[in-house]
Design a protein around this nucleic acid. Structure first.
Lengths: 209, 209
DNA sequence: CCACTTCGGATACCTTCACTATCCGAAAGT
DNA sequence: ACTTTCGGATAGTGAAGGTATCCGAAGTGG
């Protein structure tokens, strides 16, 4: 099973220990049968850990939310969002001013959000970081980012429609939430290089001229 | 100085050891004078480490590129982008198919990029993660993300214009590159909650009904 | 002038995280 | 009966990001 998922056996054992993977069906007292769903689950865990950058503990919460069949899908979404916020511990709380600015931005766009949304903290911390080097982002800057976020979120939800099964929807919801960030990050780097080419002279190759 | 920057003294010493902070001006054989620029630098380092999620080694590269006055700004941008790709070691290379899809996406949008842009790897890995759970992103999905990335990148470059000094521009470029990701991530979570509210029934508060 | 504090620098140590290696007992195959 | 293989448990590993301690030189008060 570990081979089928492309993961070292020791890592699979570790995930089971940590509660990230359910025990397989006992076929014999010392044999466990794993089906395709287990392989799929291992790959999901790896995607969240490796590409998504989540911690094992955060991944555990997400998995638990996925398996809570009774919970509404919106609740699963919430857990996935909170798990992403907790990728690192010991993060200082953002300033009130930064948070207020993010709240104003959300209100201006008519977003209906709750104040416990971890996006507030994340965005406010980023604003604090920009402020700390003396950059107070102009409104156009924030508006552009908010518009981009809206575009991506709409695409995320669009992708969910038309997928009938509850499990498939929940899984995609979680993975999309987590992997959307690195996807955007990569594409932004590409777009930045293109934009930089227009704004600055190309660096001279092989020395200065 | 550590107090002024809001960082434990031991951490500042550690950063100096690791080459993230330059030595201060010696005012006496056992006294070192720190100016406002040092405090600023400490805050920059903290923003990259804590909010940006960079490793100490990656931050060191970025700092070095910032201080290389002779280097063209485009080069500084490159280093910042590469540093972000290296936030975690031991990441497996993405599949060729995923990378090809990202390349096609960039070509379709007319982006002029080099193949060593770390954004390719990052985006392709995210696509692999989505594929691994059986989600093959439709073209509209990728187009939406690419459009969002273009919007953000344009705002990033816009913010750079009108800032005369080379140092200020380079610093903002670096911090904007690094902190743009968490800023977007936070805003996307807010937008997602809003979009989810439209697509799914609100979760019942206080129990099931 | 001499104890006493303070500062900077160097070294050793600590904690967490994500694994990895080893050991053991039971069961299946030969 | 004997070897192999499997699952589970326990202990160990290495990197990362700090923290704590020690030491010697410089300034300070009596």
């Amino acid at each position: 099973m570990a081979q089928r998922a492309g993961v070292p056996l020791s890592a699979v054992k570790y995930y089971q220990r940590e509660g990230l993977l359910p025990a397989g069906a006992r076929s014999a007292p010392n044999q466990v049968a794993y089906g395709e769903e287990h392989v799929r689950r291992v790959r999901l865990v790896r995607a969240l850990l490796e590409t998504g950058g989540l911690s094992v503990a955060a991944t555990k919460d997400v998995i638990a939310a996925l398996d809570a069949e009774a919970a509404p899908l919106a609740r699963t979404f919430q857990v996935a969002q909170h798990a992403m916020g907790a990728r690192r511990v010991q993060e200082s709380a953002p300033s009130g001013a930064a948070r207020a600015r993010v709240e104003a931005l959300a209100a201006a766009r008519g977003w209906c959000v709750t104040s416990d949304n971890p996006g507030f903290e994340a965005a406010a911390r980023a604003l604090d970081g920009l402020r700390s080097i003396g950059f107070d982002p102009p409104q156009e800057y924030l508006d552009a980012y908010a518009a981009a976020a809206g575009t991506a979120a709409a695409a995320d939800l669009q992708a969910l429609s038309g997928r009938g099964e509850r499990d498939a929807v929940a899984e995609l919801m979680v993975v999309g939430t987590v992997l959307g960030d690195p996807l955007f990050a990569g594409l932004r780097r590409l777009a930045q290089q293109d934009a930089t080419r227009d704004a600055f002279p190309a660096p001279a190759r092989g020395g200065r001229r």
